[in-house]
Design a protein around this nucleic acid. Structure first.
Lengths: 345, 345
DNA sequence: TTGAAAGCGCTACCAG
DNA sequence: CTGGTAGCGCTTTCAA
């Protein structure tokens, strides 16, 4: 409150008391008489006094706020995660400060730096697709900043982590395609350096293997910017469609890649699932209303946010240094819809 | 940085200098010799010194952060707005702190209060659907907190505002339906107390009037929670469908109401637009991929966020009190798609 | 039960 | 050019 608010001093002066007495009275200290307390509290209330949290922060050494770094809020998955984070942070009286990397490593470093030096008590982060090196985080972590990873994590820092079961998500999606009669299954995904890509890809590969299927390496497309621009998704898709051995199904990861693929397929007039089936990771609430209704791998995003926030709060509030860390894995759900209807033979 | 960071004092001690000299050297003051500056700056850099922004805030009286209050981030419109806000705030070196009201007046009051007393430099707000009274904001505004309204605004506070052209959005949508051969046009919208509802409704009414059409009052449905729960949308829709004079088209407002209506209609097996046409406000990027592709009123959400943030920053950074305020109105766009295909007679 | 005073980290004023 | 000191608003010993 820079806008000339009433301070503890003002009320001390008005009541002919000392600053410390007022401070104690406000915090309901046992050292202060009921009478004085009442006097102070009433005056404070009447004049709408609020302690200046900046001063409190400076004194106490913490700011009651946590930072969030995500790639972009304009993605249902992340907005749901943030929603979850906010809900628990709010309950605990913590503020939430957030920034977006737009999948850029440089932005990530800058954001983290800015946040870290804006005195927050903890950091919640999902790495950008470009991020390979996490020195920027290691440094802060070493200096004592509590960090919890979610979604796109790194194993180079020993701390709490929350992820969805990416392997199973990939496995289930692929297996479902196989069970529905598809065998030439392509995969459009994010860059191979980030955790979720590897895990989902592993699930995909395992499902193929378990079914005794093999696919040519050209069936796996990595969008180096995680689908940040439509162009790279379009290229991947076109390349797949141009293959002599054209895939009969596609498994996509991430909201952006999934919905864009659907959009493009529709635009090209390619019938789903008749000409090509589609299953993808997405948290959109509109999967049922899409054309066709889209079989989707859904992640419990809200719960992921809640869990991550809880873990971070634990770290922050813990009296003694935490040395035991856990990685929580949340289940994904496969919602079967028309885009993967059993293949007609 | 509560995690034992290096302070200006540490470096003063290490270099056998005074605190003030170090402070000045760091701020590149003309009073300090080049030699000392170099010494200090190098030491600071080597030891990764960062000024404690909390202390700076306390000293300077501002925090370099702005607060955002929206109903829910899990709505493409708002996430796009926030995206816009963040982009300009970031450029200006401001942090963004956000909270959600979930359309509850009580939450709004609490959030505003919490934010306001968390020492921010300015506030960006879109009112909750429940909000009728804005004393909570008036008070802060009177005390000097810069506020900019966007989307759901109030005229009870004289300040900058950014809105989309809601009247025209409503008018265009309705006129388009009329031009496409529909005449029994219903309207499902938010509660009548919020600005956007009134404006869009006015546009709807005007378009009907201009076409010489009248509709029974039962054609206008207000969802008292702005569509926060599906139930109220479902009820409105069912009531409309049960009317003896059943509407042949529906105009909906807000992402939530629009997409839910589409979902429900699909579920009921009602053909769009054959049995009932649909046009709605929504900022979803998936309108083209919906079943059927949805004619939508699109608001320049990102630009709205940018504009609102710019205005707020102006207010914050302005040396002298601002007394001239403006209300910026951004154009909406009508994207015509299949859900309002010309009526076959 | 109350108050004086120190100090969180920084900036700014005034002396030297 | 450098340093001492006050003070932002609050909490917290320590005395009284």
């Amino acid at each position: 409150m820079n806008f000339n608010a009433i301070t503890i001093r003002d009320i001390a002066r008005a009541l002919q008391l000392s600053v410390s007495t007022v401070s104690k009275a406000l915090r309901d200290s046992y050292e202060i008489s009921e009478k004085t307390k009442k006097l102070v509290v009433e005056y404070a209330e009447k004049n709408n006094y609020r302690p200046n949290p900046i001063a409190q922060s400076l004194k106490k050494g913490h700011s009651k706020s946590i930072g969030i770094v995500v790639s972009t809020i304009e993605n249902q998955f992340f907005s749901q995660v943030i929603n979850g984070i906010e809900s628990v942070a709010y309950q605990a009286g913590f503020n939430v400060i957030f920034t977006q990397t737009h999948e850029s490593y440089e932005m990530e470093v800058k954001n983290v730096d800015q946040l870290a030096h804006h005195s927050l008590d903890g950091l919640l982060i999902s790495l950008s697709t470009e991020t390979k090196d996490i020195e920027h985080l290691k440094l802060l972590h070493k200096r004592g900043l509590p960090i919890v990873f979610f979604d796109r994590i790194s194993n180079e820092i020993d701390t709490h982590k929350v992820i969805a079961d990416n392997f199973k998500g990939g496995y289930d999606a692929t297996k479902h395609l196989i069970d529905s009669g598809y065998s030439k299954i392509a995969h459009i995904t994010s860059p191979p350096n980030i955790s979720i890509t590897k895990e989902r890809l592993a699930g995909y590969n395992q499902a193929l293997k378990d079914a005794g299927l093999t696919v040519p390496p050209e069936y796996i497309k990595h969008c180096s910017h995680g689908g940040r621009d439509i162009g790279e998704i379009e290229n991947s898709l076109n390349e797949l469609l141009a293959l002599k051995e054209r895939p009969d199904a596609i498994f996509t990861t991430s909201d952006r890649i999934t919905t864009t693929t659907l959009l493009l397929l529709n635009k090209l007039g390619i019938k789903i699932p008749e000409q090509i089936a589609l299953v993808g990771y997405t948290n959109t609430t509109l999967a049922d209303a899409l054309n066709p209704p889209l079989t989707s791998v859904y992640q419990p995003a809200f719960e992921m946010g809640q869990k991550a926030a809880e873990m971070l709060l634990n770290l922050i509030l813990s009296k003694r240094p935490v040395t035991e860390f856990e990685t929580v894995t949340l289940p994904t759900q496969l919602f079967v819809r028309k885009s993967t209807a059993p293949r007609e033979v």
